[in-house]
Design a protein around this nucleic acid. Structure first.
Length: 813
RNA sequence: GCCCGGGUGGUGGAAUGGUAGACACGGAGGCCUCAAAAGCCUUUGCUCGCAAGGGCGUGCGGGUUCGAGUCCCGCCCCGGGUACCA
């Protein structure tokens, strides 16, 4: 057994005591200033892994530190407990998803408690709990009422592996499923959508006010993909009929159109095709449809394929007729599914023109030395009639003005963002509370009948169809509107719906008659500090923002609440020797082994100390050695208790250099926490401890030693809560987590002597301690009196003196 | 291709334009021990020197500055996001 510091024993003792502690329980009428600190609630996957340790201990430092600073901190946690793994397990082993999930939650919760993270567990939320399902469904109906939920036939992303439809956001750029890695295929199904696009502008604009990592904001901006441009109507001539509308961000290039292209999915393609070309066009469209997304997307490489429709469109700007094509490089789902071909100023059009032998017409003067090809930069308009001589931006505006005046088009804004497909053909999710009636259509389940719960007596089979669809008792219902025979919706919601409002529910999870209590939401929201992984940069964070705005407009939360998360911190990932650590790879280094040996505090300290919290961590053979080092450090802290006697009433402490040194270190611990640089806080804590050992060896003033040690333990409290609680209790008989964070004597610190660097010709030569308010005259006197400096400066004295006092004096000779 | 990050000792990493490498890990040497483990002490960027002391050093090349790891320009490499979005 270890002499002295027995971490597992100490930790278990305190965790038992904390079970009933009210330290981190807060209420809506708490008089202290509030803070809402939230870590993304986890999917319950069994015992915690190192990623959890990082996430939840970083949050824990935040919570404990703020609490010690007199803040009422709302720190809840729950479980994102719907999802595929539980259902897949049910298919495999026959265990009901609820049993499976509850077991996993129990395991995860136990290891989070073992970690010593502080939560108000009374507020625990589980997505699969009927009391939560009820309000998820209530919110769905609210969105339906608001016109923000609708049903639509759509070509959807079907994952053969997961046997369900995926949201666009769940399909990776290579056309595979983010979960299973299977190639996603297109299917036409009737699906439920949420109209997130209604908030596209606000979602984009409000990003500016958020204190989020810039890269996350950039990812969201790109995802929304706002483009300003114009729609232009083109009359079809020569065998076809009607018109097509194209979208462009470069209306100024209209005079450069040498062809036009529609996407293979374009609905009017038949009408646009000349009869003699119909067969070839049909064959091409059919062939494209059989190709996978993956093949279609990888556009670079081969020449751009396409087929002429045999018809022409008229350029409204100059009346010229240009040929119309169908080509797969034009996307059916974006813009109007048709573009004007301007090879002079668009790279893709240039490639297509090259492949099809079409002409190129330049409408912007090239800069000197331009190598050729499409030119998309700024310049003077040429070959463009009334636009000639203008720069690109004014020409865009003039072109739109002309389009609108002449009735040939209009200025418009398009988004890359699409509506959010939320239907899932699975059992283990929140049922969509709708009843389909032949007479009345899709009727919402009356609010007083919520929650709609999935029946337990279903069969889990790997058919790809939800078990709900085969359950007569669930499906066959009376229409709530007309009382006639009707069918219950059997799709469930995307689990991202559950996580889009859980942070609101945490404000008052006890409310039984409403999803959230207005006063509680007003008190606690927005979340002051949100903490989680970057992998949610787009999906979860965008959906949650959308829900907040929609619920705010609906009057369910205050109308001033437009953004849920004021500050976001994304912690780094854990890798194992370069590759991602994951259960499926079987390369997990579980926290449990450390709990049993060096203890949770040492593991926590390692995660704080190993590097900046936002950086990725590579778990190597060295990590264990570092954890040992952290444990050794905590042992040194522990051992000081026996060596430093408690001094009653330690108010007065000698104002000596040693005291100043401790206070400077104290300052560094605090700023490290405030700046998300826990690694530097821990370094300062280690230096602080080293300093105490030196002072002890030098037989310093017992009051200084006790004061210093007391301060050290207070500062360790957020980082290593068990050890701090144990020592503080032993020495002072008080709960360290209810103490105030040690204050700093700024005045004293600022009056203390500081080091001044002396450079000669820019090279560092000497350091002296000086008064921080030293004048240049005084400084020069001090500096020139130093023999080394005098020798380097020589007889004539310095030619020039640059002084940034009290930091540096640079003498040029 | 485009958009972000990032390249600092053997390793993880510190450093509001002003002492580069804090704090650790690892290594070397020592103390304690019959021995080991643990613990403690010394040392540890490279290099010249017996020493005092000097020189060189933050991916590469330029620049700004009295002074650059830090700011600017151009490259190279690594990681992430995104990709025919008109």
């Amino acid at each position: 057994m270890k002499a002295g510091y027995d971490a597992p024993a100490i930790e278990q003792k305190w965790q038992r005591l904390w079970e009933d502690s009210e330290t981190y329980q807060v209420s809506t009428d708490d008089p202290r200033p509030k803070a809402y600190v939230l870590c993304m609630y986890p999917y319950p996957s069994g015992p915690a892994h190192q990623g959890h340790v990082r996430n939840y201990t970083f949050g824990d430092v935040n919570v404990r530190f703020r609490t010690m600073n007199g803040i009422a901190v709302l720190s809840p946690l729950g479980f994102d407990s719907f999802g595929l793994p539980a259902e897949n397990a049910a298919i495999k082993t026959g265990v009901h998803p609820r049993t499976f999930t509850d077991d996993r939650i129990a395991e995860l919760k136990a290891s989070l408690k073992r970690l010593g993270a502080a939560y108000d567990w009374r507020r625990e939320i589980k997505s699969h709990d009927p009391s939560y399902i009820r309000w998820s469904q209530y919110i769905f109906i609210q969105l339906l009422d608001a016109g923000l939920a609708y049903q639509c036939d759509a070509p959807v992303n079907w994952c053969p592996g997961c046997k369900t439809v995926l949201a666009n956001e769940q399909v990776l750029s290579d056309g595979t499923c983010e979960r299973s890695g299977d190639l996603v295929v297109r299917r036409n199904l009737r699906q439920w959508f949420l109209r997130i696009t209604a908030y596209a502008d606000e979602l984009l604009d409000d990003l500016d006010q958020l204190e989020w990592p810039e890269r996350v904001k950039t990812m969201q901006r790109n995802w929304i993909g706002r483009s300003v441009g114009a729609e232009i109507d083109l009359e079809v001539a020569g065998g076809g009929s009607g018109k097509i509308t194209v979208f462009t961000t470069r209306p100024d290039t209209i005079f450069g159109m040498t062809f036009a292209v529609v996407a293979p999915e374009h609905p009017d393609i038949e009408a646009l095709t000349a009869p003699e070309r119909a067969a070839e066009v049909q064959a091409y469209v059919a062939e494209v449809a059989t190709r996978s997304e993956l093949e279609r997307m990888s556009g670079d490489g081969g020449p751009k394929r396409g087929v002429p429709l045999g018809t022409f469109v008229v350029n409204p700007a100059n009346g010229s007729k240009v040929p119309l094509y169908v080509a797969e490089y034009v996307l059916g789902q974006y813009g109007t599914g048709a573009v004007m071909g301007v090879p002079g100023e668009d790279e893709r059009d240039f490639e297509f023109a090259g492949a099809q032998g079409l002409g190129v017409l330049e409408t912007v003067a090239r800069p000197a030395g331009f190598p050729g090809g499409a030119y998309s930069g700024d310049g003077v308009k040429i070959n463009s009639g009334f636009l000639d001589g203008l720069a690109v931006q004014p020409a865009k505006e003039a072109a739109i003005e002309w389009l609108e005046a002449s009735g040939h088009g209009r200025g418009t804004v398009k988004y890359r963002l699409r509506d959010w497909l939320v239907s899932r053909q699975r059992y283990w999710g929140c049922p969509i509370p709708i009843i389909h009636c032949d007479g009345c259509g899709a009727v919402p389940v009356p609010v007083e009948e919520l929650p709609v719960l999935a029946p337990d007596d279903v069969e889990f089979l790997p058919t790809g169809e939800s078990p709900l669809a085969k359950h007569r008792g669930f499906v066959d219902v009376a229409c709530p509107s007309c009382g006639g025979k009707a069918r219950r919706e059997t799709d469930t919601m995307d689990t991202f719906v559950d996580s889009s409002w859980y942070f609101l529910r945490f404000c008052d999870p006890f409310a039984e008659d409403r999803p959230f209590d207005m006063a509680a939401v007003r008190k606690w929201m927005p979340v002051d500090q949100y903490i989680g992984g970057v992998e949610h940069a787009i999906l979860h964070l965008m959906y949650a923002r959308f829900f907040t705005k929609a619920l705010s407009d609906r009057g369910l939360v205050p109308d001033t609440l437009r953004e849920p998360f004021t500050k976001l911190f994304t912690q780094g990932m854990i890798r194992l020797e370069g590759s991602k650590m994951s259960k499926s790879k079987g390369n997990l280094v579980t926290p449990q082994r450390y709990f049993d040996t060096v203890g949770a505090d040492s593991l926590r300290l390692f995660h704080f100390f190993v590097g900046p919290p936002g950086d990725d961590v590579d778990w190597t053979s060295q990590s264990d050695e570092m954890i040992e080092g952290c444990n050794r450090f905590l042992g040194r802290v522990f051992n000081l208790d026996a060596q430093i006697p408690v001094v009653e009433g330690t108010a007065a402490v000698a104002r000596e250099e040693a005291f100043l040194e401790l206070m400077r270190l104290q300052d560094r611990v605090t700023t490290g926490i405030e700046r998300w640089a826990y690694n530097t806080s821990v370094a300062a804590l280690m230096e602080y401890t080293n300093a105490l050992y030196r002072l002890l060896a030098a037989a310093s003033d017992p009051r200084l030693l006790d004061h210093g040690y007391r301060t050290l333990i207070l500062m360790l409290a957020p980082f290593t809560p068990h050890l701090a609680a144990e020592i503080f209790d032993r020495r002072y008989g008080r709960d360290v987590h209810r103490e105030r964070w040690p204050e700093l004597d700024r005045e004293l610190l600022e009056a203390a002597l500081v080091p001044m660097v002396i450079q000669v010709n820019g090279k560092m030569r000497e350091v002296v301690e000086v008064d921080p308010k030293i004048t240049e005259e005084e400084a020069l006197q001090v500096v020139l009196a130093l023999p080394k400096v005098a020798g380097l400066v020589g007889e004539g004295g310095p030619k020039r003196v640059i002084a940034k006092l009290p930091k540096v004096v640079n003498l040029l000779v």
